[in-house]
Simulated assay, not measured.
Amino acid sequence: MDVKTLQQKLKTGDIAPLYLILGEETALQETARSLFAHLLTADEKTMNYAHLDMTTATVGDLLGEATAMPFLGERRVVVATQPEFLTGNAGKDQLKEDIDGLTAYFAHPSESTTLVIAAPYPKLDERRKIVKQLRKNAVLIDAQQVPAGAVGAQVAEQIRTAGYQIEEDALNLFLRKSDASYSRMVTQLPKLYLGSLPDKIISLPLVRDLVPNTLTDNVFSVTDALAQQHVGEAVRVYQELLANQEEPLRLNALLVSQFRLLVQTKILSRKGLSQMAIAKELSVHPYRVKLALRSVHSLSLTTLIACFTELIHNEVLFKSQQPDPMLLFLRVVHHLSVPAGKSVG
């Protein structure tokens, strides 16, 4: 069940006694948890709502909250976050009798309690008896990461549902500045809504001014400048990143990732694949492919591979020595010097 379906069911009073929210998408986890919190009035929450962080609470604490009777109300809502005891990671030591007790509770959950297990992980340890019992009786809420190719459409739909509009160019820039992260984009929406008043149209200048650049976006500026052979601009931005105390190894890793995309895009485009087909093949957002296609247009595959190989070599040097990061970066730039008259393919 997705979060939207959960909202509809809770609104109509279709409430189960046991839920599992599973997945790493922070925004979906938070939205789902907030829906359960709103099942109770402000007065009811005082005595009948409990939130346990399982990195500090015990399974015994959780079992006690789940089995307690509602006080001056019809229902208790208990939310347990970070349940590492359900994963392969041992986490906080838990008593076996408490684990057995919670397993038995999962088999027969109390009808007067809505117990929500919020697990921000890609998966649980399916070998464990407690996980099998939870899976058997809990309503599963999907909070897995939104695929990069679907992020734009989902965010645009959320904006429309809220009564706002976003221009296509603004959405594309929003995706780039947020590294196509659904959760990152959702956290930026409130200020974009406020900034778009009174016409409720989110424009390109608004996104440019209000959405901060991520490190990935800053490194993209370096990659894009290199691809356009604007060497001075690329060097300037890279120097600024170093001056801002960004870790050279991390910068190099991001450059490796972006040049890998350029190489892959160049190869697939030469095979005749369209922008959408390349995006599907590489599991990235189509807008990233659009930018990559623009970047690789004037560069040969040989040049791209040479830059990529140099960056891989730099990674080895960063891990084994303490080289001058600017010198290594300039060695990458050197490969972009295409001899006059040579075909760039």
Rank of each mutant, 00 (worst) to 15 (best):
D199I: 03
H285R: 04
P248L: 04
Q188H: 12
L192P: 08
E168V: 06
R331E: 14
V59E: 07
S196M: 01
V59S: 08
A16M: 12
V263N: 01
Y19Q: 04
S274C: 06
F106D: 04
Q322H: 14
R184E: 11
V219A: 07
E281Y: 02
L39V: 02
L249S: 14
V235Y: 02
L134D: 00
S337V: 12
F318T: 09
Q29A: 05
F174W: 13
A150H: 11
A143T: 04
Q275E: 15
A37D: 09
A234G: 02
T303R: 12
A340S: 13
A119T: 09
E246Q: 14
G149Q: 12
L262H: 03
V219D: 07
F220I: 00
K45D: 06
M185S: 09
T5I: 05
K123C: 02
P198W: 06
E24R: 05
P120G: 12
A227R: 02
A253Q: 10
S343K: 13
L268Y: 08
L140T: 11
K123S: 14
T223F: 05
E97Y: 12
T265H: 08
L268A: 05
L273T: 03
L327C: 02
Y164A: 08
D125M: 08
T58R: 10
L6N: 10
S221A: 15
Y164G: 04
Q229R: 15
L52D: 01
E157N: 10
G195N: 11
L35S: 13
R176P: 00
S343V: 10
K9P: 00
Q165I: 01
L40F: 06
V344N: 14
L273Y: 12
E44N: 05
R127W: 11
Q158E: 14
L197Q: 14
Y49I: 00
L251F: 12
G13F: 10
A50T: 13
L330Q: 14
T216C: 01
N48G: 07
A107Q: 13
G152Y: 03
T55F: 01
K266I: 05
Q8G: 02
K92S: 02
I15P: 05
E65H: 09
N244T: 11
E24N: 08
S337T: 12
E25T: 03
L124G: 04
I267Q: 13
L317Q: 14
E157P: 06
Y105S: 02
F174C: 08
S343P: 04
R331S: 14
Q264A: 12
L18W: 06
R294P: 01
F71M: 13
S110F: 10
T309C: 07
L189A: 03
L327N: 09
E65Q: 15
D179E: 15
L262V: 07
S112N: 10
Y105P: 01
T41L: 04
S178W: 00
K177I: 05
G13L: 11
L210K: 06
V139Q: 12
S300W: 09
Y287I: 03
P212F: 00
G60R: 02
L282P: 04
K200R: 15
P122S: 15
L40D: 01
